[in-house]
Amino acid sequence: MGFDLPFNVIADGGGLMNLKGCLILAGVIFSIGAWGVVARRNVLTVLISLELMLNAVNLVFASFARMHANMTQSANNATAGENGQIFALFIIAVAAAEAAVGLAILITYFRNKETVDTRDMKELKQ
């Protein structure tokens, strides 16, 4: 039983497909997301940028999970290798919840104020 991979990911070592490359890629994606959050004035795009950042974090978790994949020495932490992936799963769940609530708030706000521009969202300042 199991899930047959189409290619052997384990066999070849060198090249770009390594831990460092994954982490750098995650950092770049995270930064792009952060840029979007900071620079964009459309709440929708801001929310999408947030998703980008969360995905970057997931990528980091998955990378380290693979690094710890062979932590099977004792019965107690025999499953430690999968914990990173499980954490990523939780992040996806939270991201889904966040997107749902955030968009619901956005809709409500738009219904009342006819705008999704962050420059107009200054109620707390006044």
């Binding site: 039983m1 199991g2 899930f3 991979l5 990911v9 384990i10 070592g13 390594n18 831990l19 990378s63 999970a65 693979r66 690094m67 994949a69 062979n70 099977t72 025999a78 290798g81 999968e82 992936q85």
Partner: peptide, 15 residues
């Protein structure tokens, strides 16, 4: 990272 063991003790593949 490169030499991760793909198989678990009860036969399941990692991931």
């Amino acid at each position: 990272f490169a030499s991760a063991i793909a198989t678990r003790e009860h036969g399941a593949i990692f991931g």
